[in-house]
Design a protein around this nucleic acid. Structure first.
Lengths: 222, 222
DNA sequence: CCATCAAGTAACTGTTTGGTTACTGGCCGG
DNA sequence: CCGGCCAGTAACCAAACAGTTACTTGATGG
């Protein structure tokens, strides 16, 4: 997100000169810095000064673009949800056989969680506060119905052809997949400590990936 | 913990009179208040003044008994781990058939999590900080080997009688049980919000309890 | 019965924090 | 070519914070 970014031509006029004033770039930098700061320290631990410094700007701009710390946090959270749901939508789990579709969703979810620990961390923070900010969000409520609808279709198709049990419930299936991925990754530090095994090791990660697919399918297979 | 607690007779001398100075009671009150404060607000959000007030004492005592905020937090965390592992040990999952033993462990874990959300919250906080404080703890490392040993025995017995698959791994089984319980409870607020279904409702909780047992057994049954 | 020491209180301190104010400088329309 | 506007800066502020100091109270053993 940083580093390789070419200087944007700044809407108003195309110019090659290094622009200090680039509102969109500044805004994006703040959002990205805030994502990291909130993910690493939680709402209570995140520091506004630290976000400004990480973004290479200062607090004035942060308050200018986002109002206050809480609104900035909500923006970060919304962006994170949009990120996973957007990627998920491009899967088209209905294009294959029901079993392959479910396996694909499980793999995608696991790998997305693994690649975006900051998303899991934000979820953790938000739940600590009982979804205080998420509940205020208007944008996000409908973002999720798509997932359940698509999953319902895949499961129904599998039930008709007799590969899935009738009791298979779409929400339960998704929660099962998400549970197994979320817990392993977000709790890896305490788990590795108390069980004396490094869960982040490649071999263990691969084994758990296979385990998730196995468990998910085993729980709904006829 | 409060309210119904009879006045302790204060070691040194039995007396019915209401004692203001009762070191053990004060210590316990601080620990209990700190547990709630840390669970509700995380390490970064917890306030030392709030803990003192909740405990009905003041900061001086808190620093007197526990050193500083971080050490107090570590005490709280250790206490929480000792709590679940102690209760778990009394299960004796080896006393029944292997299948019943695993089901029993799954039920126990789910119900313990449900009854002690503050434990889940503390785990979340500790993992946010990558087990920074837990790693310092000497007491806790061996507390967990017992669980794995007992679980290994139960699984081996099931493998011999042919009810479990050979690939069944004790750590994986425990992680599966814990994942399904942890995620559902600790993420109930965001999940209920985005899916528009109240996961804390009795019917849903009971269904998930059955689901956990079903999934766990389905994943290891021959 | 009083000297001693631990339990307990409250007011204080230096620092950090979220948020603000007063200011600078570049750009664009008229 | 200039007046107003908007991106950006830095110094500032009051409140909140973790941790401390100076003090009071009460039980107990010699």
């Amino acid at each position: 997100m940083d580093g390789s970014g070419e200087k944007k031509p700044a809407k108003r006029r195309s110019q090659e000169r290094v622009l200090q004033r680039d509102p969109e770039r500044t805004r994006a930098a703040i959002l990205e810095a805030a994502t990291r700061e909130f993910a690493e320290n939680g709402m209570g631990g995140a520091r506004v000064d630290a976000i400004a410094e990480r973004a290479g700007t200062n607090k004035r701009m942060l308050y200018h673009y986002f109002g206050d710390k809480e609104q900035l946090y909500l923006h970060v959270l919304e962006e994170a949800y949009v990120g996973i749901r957007t990627a998920e939508r491009e899967l088209h789990i209905g294009d294959r056989s029901p079993e392959e579709g479910i396996a694909e969703l499980a793999l995608f979810t696991w790998r997305y969680f693994l690649k975006h620990p900051e998303f899991l961390s934000l979820l953790g923070t938000e739940n600590l506060h009982r979804a205080r900010w998420l509940r205020q969000s208007v944008r996000l409520k409908e973002l999720h119905s798509h997932l359940i609808v698509e999953l319902t279709e895949v499961l129904d198709r599998g039930k008709k052809t007799g590969v899935f049990i009738d009791a298979a419930d779409p929400l339960n299936v998704y929660l099962t997949i998400a549970s197994l991925g979320y817990f392993y990754i977000s709790n890896q530090y305490t788990l590795s400590t108390i069980f004396g095994r490094d869960l982040a090791e490649k071999g263990n990660l691969d084994a758990w990936e296979r385990h998730i697919v196995h468990v998910t399918l085993a729980s709904i297979k006829a």
